[in-house]
Design a protein around this nucleic acid. Structure first.
Lengths: 187, 187
DNA sequence: CCGGTGATGTCACTGACTGACATCGCCGAT
DNA sequence: ATCGGCGATGTCAGTCAGTGACATCACCGG
């Protein structure tokens, strides 16, 4: 056993989720989160850049996975087909185990403008990943930007629908359905 | 003449733009902005909710105008046609007079994550406006959400292209071009 | 001329975040 | 085995964003 309990970051994440859900984001201080995790506030800020980030750590991974799927798409796939592959790849992040956690987390985020802002910028960074991936495939810049934006819009809408859907609906199905809606929309 | 110089809010906006551009957002304190505008920091917060908002005051108007255009679209217009009308209506906000200001403002925002977050949430609220407008037209909720997201994506991409474009290109042309790209994309 | 009102100033306070420095178990080199 | 450096944490002092409570005072309607 080390000088301190291991996984301070994990304890901080759990403490934050619990307190945000219980007293709300504004009603929670960083000192309280740190206390519950058994560390000091200074340590909180060594693990997370700010009070919001504790709910979003690791979210880069999702963007990376999607970018990887995009890169792995057949060379002759159209931009939108490649983006579709990327969005479908996101489904693996949200297996049924995470569904309940996702719901609680989404509820907290939805109730606090500051957290909504942070979520939006994560989505924007996802958009950037996809755009870069498309550019690497030789796609025209304007097309790439638009295809990426559209792809993330599909992800966002699908995720929301999935959260609200019954437990036995897999997210991949929701995504496919959203993609269908999109093509009907612009037909 | 009143007890104080009129238009404190306007002076604060100008002071903020100047200082953010000059020293950067992080390198500027609210006290400095207030000083330059000839008021106290407390007064700054009476006019703007926070240090970011001073660059975004009035941005609800854009969303309102777009929502109005959407509502004014012919009853038999498809969701995407209605959204198209809304996005084109945004062009009137950005006449050539505001182009230079828009460029400076965009540069400041682009260089500061906090400001990018705020801009993103404004875009999200625009999305909500469009979604609500579509719902009021009787559009299916999922279709409405997706059409609104797509419309805002078109606006965002167009605005960026317009900023980067030569001075004689009107934003309406850029928007029309982006819409064309979109329909080609999902064809 | 007078009392109400609205925009501002003043002050004290909380809480997020940062930089500098101290602490001390652990682990590898000797 | 022990010595010394490293890394994760604690401590402390400080800056700055943002808020609530109360005072001020030119202006305006009666």
């Amino acid at each position: 056993m080390g000088r301190w309990e291991p996984d301070a970051a994990g304890r901080l994440r759990e403490a934050a989720m619990a307190l945000y859900a219980e007293r709300g984001y504004d009603g929670t201080t960083v000192a309280e989160i740190a206390d519950r995790a058994g560390v000091t506030a200074r340590t909180f800020f060594r693990h997370f850049a700010d009070k919001r980030e504790v709910l979003f750590a690791g979210s880069e991974l999702l963007g990376q996975d999607m970018a990887a799927a995009l890169a792995a798409a057949p060379a002759d796939a159209s931009p939108m087909e490649a983006v579709t592959a990327a969005v479908l790849a996101s489904a693996e992040f949200f297996d049924d185990l995470r569904r309940d956690y996702s719901r609680r987390r989404a509820a907290v985020i939805a109730s606090t403008p500051e957290l909504r802002e942070r979520e939006l910028i994560k989505m924007a960074s996802m958009t950037t990943s996809l755009t870069d991936g498309l550019l690497a495939r030789g796609v025209d810049p304007d097309v790439a930007a638009l295809a990426a934006e559209t792809g993330v819009a599909v992800f966002r809408v699908s995720f929301e629908r999935w959260i609200a859907a019954p437990d036995d609906v897999p997210i991949a199905d929701v995504i496919r359905s959203t993609l269908k809606t999109l093509s009907a929309l612009t037909a």
